[in-house]
Design a protein around this nucleic acid. Sequence first.
DNA 1: CTCACGGCTCTCA
DNA 2: CTGAGAGCCGTGA
Length: 112
Amino acid sequence: MFLLGILGHKMTNQEQQDFKSQVFYLLSTSNKGDTFTYGELAKHAGAPKHARLVGKILKELPKDTRLPWYRVVNSKQMISFAENSDGYLRQRKLLEDEGWVITGQKLLTPEK
DNA sequence: CTCACGGCTCTCA
DNA sequence: CTGAGAGCCGTGA
């Protein structure tokens, strides 16, 4: 895996492109039931401090994408959407379909 | 150049 | 466990 942006240096377009590709790759190779946090993805994609960028990227995915964007939650294992927003509802449904139990409002718990 | 704003994260109280 | 505060960093006004 290529580590880029090791140290403070603004990401070039090329790097951002690679970063994005990595994120997509990681997601595309994930299996049913997996989940990642934004931070993990960013880290695995080579830019540890870019959790937010991951969010931005996912946000721009086309609605009909086949990528499992919904397997990405924040570091607290919660859905990072405002409760009851449609994004939240969609993600929740998809996760439940993969066997997750979302307790109460947001908490995400493994179904183990 | 600042300012605000994210599908974020950590730390500390 | 909860919440405030500070980092973080690309983007757009």
